[in-house]
């Protein structure tokens, strides 16, 4: 809980727009918010733990459904990105001839982006999609977004296998830093889950959240260093790109897969902090509205 407590003040000052006149009151208020965020995280972890059986069952169900009736089965989750990589590589490796092994360069960032955008958009409709269940069984509703984050994670692991194969095939050495993946995946997971929960709430109340998100994701894709790397851009542009909360998670994951370097610690901690704040705000919003979902089908 400690690292959470240290970053949460930002969340509280964001979620309480009206400035309080006295600083003493302000501090009290901030303290209350931190306390509440801590409580939310506790409930969150407790609920996830007590529904772990259901999460596992749902994830296996999702995967089974996805691949059951296709003849190539699990191979699809590797073929899909491979095909995309091939096309993009053919074009961009000519545009950006300075990049060595462009396929690996691209792939190592594309997996992060695909995890993010796929999970966020699926989470968005997960509450409405499970309304039948929500109306019958009292349960914490964020279990549905969590399930999606988990299924997509399994898919991501399958794609990782493809990435490693591609790396070897193009003749690039495999670095030990690949093993750091679970650590450098954390900020991406936190931000993805937080945003997914926020959008899930928003989608219940405003159906056009879907359309807006699609638009925003499209722009966001180009603002995230996936097709290109920050080193290819002048510093005054990169400075602005760093404001993108996905900038560090995506580039750092690329560093461990493509460059074989251990990413810098400070940006890492920063993005974990941002992730915790995003998730804290999301949980706050989610818990506050959870009981109303049932009236909005």
């Amino acid at each position: 809980m400690d690292n959470r407590a240290t970053v949460s003040p930002q969340s509280s000052s964001q979620s309480s727009p009206q400035p309080s006149p006295k600083s003493g009151e302000m501090i009290e208020r901030v303290w209350r918010e931190i306390h509440l965020a801590g409580e939310h995280f506790l409930t969150f972890f407790r609920d996830v733990y007590s529904y772990r059986g259901y999460i596992v069952q749902s994830v296996t169900r999702d995967l089974r459904k996805k691949y059951k009736r296709s003849s190539l089965g699990y191979l699809w989750s590797m073929l899909n990105p491979l095909l995309m990589i091939t096309v993009l590589t053919v074009i961009f490796s000519n545009l950006l001839p300075r990049v060595e092994h462009y396929a690996v360069f691209l792939f190592s960032a594309l997996i992060s982006w695909q995890y993010f955008s796929g999970t966020v958009s699926e989470c968005m409709s997960s509450i409405r999609g499970n309304m039948n269940l929500i109306q019958q069984v009292p349960m914490p509703k964020f279990i549905f977004p969590i399930t999606i984050a988990c299924s997509n994670f399994v898919n991501l692991l399958l794609t990782l296998v493809a990435l490693l194969i591609v790396t070897v095939v193009v003749g690039r050495p495999l670095h030990w830093t690949v093993l750091l993946f679970p650590i450098y995946f954390i900020p991406l997971l936190l931000i993805t889950l937080g945003l997914g929960l926020l959008l899930a709430v928003s989608e219940i109340f405003f159906e056009d959240t879907k359309h807006l998100t699609k638009l925003v994701l499209q722009a966001w894709y180009y603002l995230t260093p996936v097709l290109y790397g920050p080193a290819m851009l002048p510093e005054h542009v990169v400075r602005w790109l760093r404001l993108n909360p996905l900038f560090y998670p995506v580039t750092q994951l690329r560093e461990i897969f493509y460059d074989g370097a251990v990413p810098a610690l400070l940006p890492y901690l920063l993005s974990v902090g941002v992730g915790v704040v995003v998730l804290a705000v999301a949980l706050r919003v989610f818990y506050r509205n959870e009981d109303k979902f049932i009236y909005f089908v």
């Binding site: 259901y54 069952q57 349960m139």
Partner: peptide, 8 residues
């Protein structure tokens, strides 16, 4: 299995 796990 799905139903049972939902009921923890």
């Amino acid at each position: 299995y799905l139903y049972g796990s939902l009921h923890r």
